[in-house]
Amino acid sequence: MTRTMADDRRPLDASWLHRQRRHFRLWRRFLGQAVVRETHYRAHFATTLLVGLVELGLGVVPILLLFGFAQEVQGWSRAEVITLVGVYQIVTGLMAAFVAPNLQRMTSYITEGELDGVLLRPVSSQFYLTLRWINVAELSNVASGIAVLVIGLVQSGASPNAAQVLQAFVLAACGLVLLATVWSALAFLAFWLQSVGPIAYIYLNLVEAGRYPLAFFPVAVRAFLTFAFPVAFASTYPAQALAGDLGWTPVAGGVALVVVAVTLVRLLWRRGLRTYASASS
């Protein structure tokens, strides 16, 4: 066949590490622009903050009522469940700030051909599609989550040591990544289903289960919330780690699950892209 030629240029990334650095720099630009944008919409920030606070309060209502009728449920005290709600609020707040705004756009990316504009860029398309848009105002929910977490810890009198804090941190990070992969997987179904708006809605309702300890559910549901829809890593496990009831085994399990989930989503993404590139016109 006929060969072609191009200008001599230094490669875009000299190494794998350079490539990651370029992507990180790009992400920092996303964040910077989102912050600037948010300052133009102060009303939006105020509304998000207020709605977030009310929703947080509302989420605590069933728990407060529940512990009005019982001192302890399945070995969980009220203060421990409040700690758990704090962790849940932080993780879901991070999701809402960094991941959710992107996956909500998947439908329009695919049906309106905006994906073409992304595929033409010399960046990882999955990275771009998952992290391009940031809703800074949602970070206020992370702040309120931290406050709730502290209240819960103080009330329960827990004094986690460094190892336990590390465990909780790693578990919560696993929870964040796992939730993001689950949502990505649901969003990537848009390659085949065209519209995934309602599916995102299922996610938002299912994730509510994370407001309660795993132990509050029947065994089958616990397995579902650990492995299939792993919201347990975003609330129950980190809260248990902070209470000191958890060893390193669940942490290792969480990391292993992350590896599996990320690999699967990566495969799904490749399959989807393949479908897109051979079917779109």
Binding site: D7, R9, R19, L119, L120
Partner: peptide, 12 residues
């Protein structure tokens, strides 16, 4: 292949 080194040389 959509190699980044290719994509940086074109525009659509």
């Amino acid at each position: 292949d959509r190699k980044h080194d290719y994509l940086r040389r074109i525009a659509l």
